[in-house]
């Protein structure tokens, strides 16, 4: 048997009322690799990402994290909140809007999960938090509240908050979409470092440059369907599907002044 997937998505369907947001999605996320999910808005890529840590429940199919199904003990039988929380501990997530807690400093944001979820004592958690913040280049702003940080700095703190928990898998939901263009680089830089250290990453992004240069595989979604999964060069430079070509054309047109 080849190396097991970090995440195995099998025949996943997701509905919002009568609207089907995900249609029979099959996708394997290899461990230690970067997978980018791309596609037009409303294609279901963020929904799929949020199903991986069960922030969005899926109705049918299976999502296995290291071989264990998330959200359900068996198909149709939801798992207890406690078991779900245990599984989420090893899955880090970074959001488009950062979602830092504004009433806490950068360091407290990172330490909170270590104290409440991992049960570390406060001084140990603070030390671990400081270490994670150093890693994302935020050591000098540890005492700042989020309101006193730029978007790029807030997102780096959010990444530190996730990696401090020592996850086996990191999910990024359009991590640079809310940032001013000049701040995108610092966040992508931190993500590249994480990738080079062998972190398993699933990234929903509109940064085609990141997908082209950092991703190991790219998945293209449209209308809730997984249209294609392949290497970045195949998807981005030699797409076989007309829908992918149409999507990429919008990028080419925007860059051709």
């Amino acid at each position: 048997m080849v190396q097991a997937s970090a995440v195995e998505i099998r025949k996943v369907n997701k509905f919002y009322g009568p609207f089907q947001a995900l249609k029979d999605i099959d996708l394997s996320i290899p461990p230690g690799k970067v997978t980018c999910l791309i596609g037009p808005s409303g294609s279901g890529k963020s929904t799929l990402l949020r199903c991986i840590n069960f922030l969005e429940p899926y109705e049918s199919g299976k999502i296995l994290i290291d071989g264990q199904m998330i959200g359900y003990d068996a198909p149709g039988k939801p798992m207890s909140g406690r078991r779900l929380r245990d599984m989420r501990r090893s899955i880090g997530m970074v959001f488009q809007q950062f979602n830092l807690w504004p009433h806490m400093t950068a360091q407290q944001n990172v330490a909170e999960g270590l104290i409440r979820v991992r049960g570390l004592r406060k001084p140990d958690a603070e030390e671990r938090a400081a270490e994670a913040l150093r890693k994302v280049g935020m050591a000098d702003k540890m005492g700042n509240h989020p309101a006193r940080l730029s978007g790029g700095q807030q997102q780096r703190v959010a990444i530190a908050r996730a990696i401090a928990m020592e996850p086996r898998l990191m999910l990024f939901d359009e991590p640079t979409s809310a940032l001013d263009p000049e701040l995108v680089g610092e966040v992508l830089g931190v993500m590249k470092t994480l990738a080079s250290e062998g972190m398993t990453m699933v990234v929903v992004t509109h940064e085609m440059g990141f997908a082209a240069h950092v991703a190991d595989q790219v998945a293209f979604l449209e209308g809730g369907e997984l249209v294609a999964v392949d290497t970045p060069s195949t998807i981005l430079h030699h797409p076989r599907d007309a829908r992918i070509r149409a999507f990429l054309r919008t990028y080419h047109e925007r860059n051709a002044f």
Binding site: N53, L55, R85, M87, R88, G92, F95, N99, G113, R161
Partner: peptide
């Protein structure tokens, strides 16, 4: 998103 960020790291309700 405030609650989601906490749920995502496994905090109890």
């Amino acid at each position: 998103g405030q609650t989601e960020a906490a749920e995502a790291i496994g905090m109890s309700s």
